[in-house]
Structures are given as C-alpha cells and as structure tokens.
Design a protein around this nucleic acid. Structure first.
Length: 111
DNA sequence: AATGTGACATACC
DNA sequence: TGGTATGCCACAT
C-alpha cells in the first residue's frame, strides 16, 4: 500500500501469501495491487525474486493459461514443475492441471 | 535523460 | 484457431 516502497516488495508479499497447493496468475496479483495493467511488471518482479533474501514461491505463479511460463528462469527448467508436484499440484505439459480449481485469487481469497 | 526489455494480457487479423 | 500487434509499467543500462 505504501507506494513509496518497491512494487516488487508488494508482489513478493502476495506471492508468499499463496497457500500451499494453490497457484495464481500474474494478472491476479497485479490487479490485487491495483495495477491490473502491470501484469508484466509482476513477472519482472519474480525475476528479481532471487534477489530477495526471503524465499518467494514463484513456482506458484503462472500465466493466465496456468502454464509454467517462467519455469525457464528457475534453477532448472524442471524445478518449477517438481516444486508444484511436491505441493500436490499436477503439471502436464508445463500446464497446471485443474488450474481453475487451484487458482487462488488474492482479491477474493485474501479479501 | 532516454531507450530497451520483459516470468503478461488483450485485441485484432 | 493461431500468430501478430500493441498496451502497459517498472527496472536495467
């Protein structure tokens, strides 16, 4: 809320709030932060997530299609999928299974 | 200061 | 039904 802070920090906060076994989309986070049009910046924030000292479950953040678009930016291209499967989320062909069911909308769940 | 870039999203052809 | 185009906004150089 304090706009003086980095946008990234807000994104990280929300991402950390994602319950285990759930996923969300960049657009949802952006919207929750009041920057629905900054969905790209959300993804950019994840890119800087490795810069954060605290761990950011970026693997729980996928694109609108539920596709692991950012898996390539992880330690390994498979790290994201494995991390999701570890939490009970099935991933097929780089896409979250039942994405709609597992979708966690901060503006609704966190309401 | 200006230009480039991107882990998206939406619209249009 | 799928690729192309554009918007969008914060960060990097």
């Amino acid at each position: 809320m304090d706009s003086k802070k980095d946008f990234f920090q807000d994104v990280f906060e929300v991402v950390r709030l994602i319950p285990k076994g759930r996923v969300t989309s960049y657009g949802a986070i952006a919207k929750y932060l009041g920057a629905a049009k900054s969905s790209r910046v959300v993804g950019y924030a994840m890119n800087a997530s490795h810069s954060e000292k605290k761990y950011v479950p970026a693997h729980r953040v996928v694109n609108r299609n539920g596709m692991l678009s950012g898996k390539h930016h992880f330690q390994s291209p498979t790290a994201m999928q494995e991390a999701l499967e570890k939490e009970g989320i099935n991933v097929k062909n780089d896409v979250v299974v039942d994405f709609k069911k597992l979708f966690w909308d901060p503006s609704k769940e966190l309401l």
